[in-house]
Write a protein that binds this DNA or RNA. Structure first.
Lengths: 217, 217
DNA sequence: ACTAACTCATACATTCCTGTTCGAGTAAAG
DNA sequence: CTTTACTCGAACAGGAATGTATGAGTTAGT
């Protein structure tokens, strides 16, 4: 209910769905404190609820946020708009994490740091992403993802140039490998076959192995 | 009369299409040829349609099978039952592939053969599996999967014992890695970033790297 | 050719979700 | 303490999907 996190959550995303007659559309009048609080709670609940079940109902999300269904529609006039906002929120947060991370130095060590400190975010967003995939227009997801992906891609490219990551496979594939393994880890945890604390190290070890130039230490 | 003779519901576990099998629990009446044909068409259509869209409607599946919706219900009385049968079909087929495969000799080469010749099946079943995950009861999926998984697991264990696969990570995780990467490859293909023909070799290369004992060729 | 097995379109009852409207109540900002 | 911003439940219209029923037509076995 009072999941008050300090997230700013660039609220009104007038993306593709119509400008929405949500609570304070456009009008930058005074914004009441509880409204801000509720909006943050809704985004958090969206993340959490959809992670457990990508088909969760608007009613379920509202309930999880400790808010009436009508209030939810007051903040986000669409299911699409809600998911868009939630995804943007998670991605923005992830970008923040990466910004504070030192990706210089030995690419292998940088990769290790990156994986260990960010895989949990991927975990959280994985089902959200699944939901987004069938609710949001074509390019939207990639747009939102762009920033985050660029950072990782640059690290991988640097590693290849320095001969520390294998260059016989395209960067796109290395990126996909990373995504896939993180999602796989999340699945294993959900299935109870993997301890959450073990996930980071295992991912690091597996990825470093997968990225190592063939026939070499 | 109609096909809904009341006993049809519980008896739809026939493996691959073309495999005769009993129609009714008690009375094996004569089974007409077009009925067998249609049932096979339905299973195929289920696989194909759900692969494109895990939320596909019964109506869509029926249409894709070139069959009326009512006819579909004549063969499978539930959505769950249909998906169960389709998944069993795919898995049975996969088992057939693995049976004909030589998994002896150098585990690394065996793994390569396994991946290249079976990843496509995983591709086909991935969305089917997603559909099954929210439509089928808890243990059912794992039950159906059991046989298939056992084969791979044995190969991995042997590789570990022979010192050719890393033993610092549990077999469960190596298995999960394989799954995750295959799904990832399927995604990349769906997104147009990977050529279907490249997937097999890339998977092979990546997995061999990931499985190699740390600090070694 | 006869009959049982099967198919199909139409139509109906049910259930569930979405998005909107209403009016009355409550919390916050000045 | 007054105004404004927001919240809430209940209720409604709409759409969409599931599963069932009916009856007339078609296909295939013997």
């Amino acid at each position: 209910m009072r999941v008050t996190n300090g997230a700013v959550s660039a609220s009104r995303r007038a993306g593709s769905p119509g400008e929405g007659g949500a609570v304070t559309a456009g009008q930058t009048g005074r914004r009441r404190a509880d409204a801000v609080r509720n909006q943050a709670a809704i985004l958090t609940a969206t993340r959490g609820t959809l992670s457990a079940n990508p088909d969760a109902t608007m009613a379920q999300i509202a309930h999880a946020a400790g808010v009436g269904r009508v209030t939810l529609y007051g903040h986000f006039s669409n299911r699409a708009e809600l998911i868009d906002a939630a995804l943007a929120d998670v991605l923005h947060r992830g970008n923040g994490v990466l910004e504070q991370l030192d990706l210089d130095g030995d690419p292998r060590e940088a990769l290790g740091r990156l994986v260990v400190s960010s895989w949990k975010l991927v975990d959280e967003s994985r089902s959200l992403l699944a939901a987004a995939q069938r609710e949001l227009p074509e390019g939207r997801i990639r747009d939102l993802h762009g920033d985050l992906e660029g950072r990782v891609r640059r690290l991988l490219e640097r590693g290849q140039q320095e001969g520390l990551f294998r260059a016989d496979l395209p960067v796109d594939w290395l990126l996909a490998t990373m995504h896939a393994l993180m999602h796989g880890a999340a699945n294993e945890i959900a299935a109870g076959r993997l301890e959450p604390d073990d996930a980071g190290p295992m991912l690091r070890a597996t990825l470093l192995g997968a990225y190592a130039p063939p026939g070499d230490a």
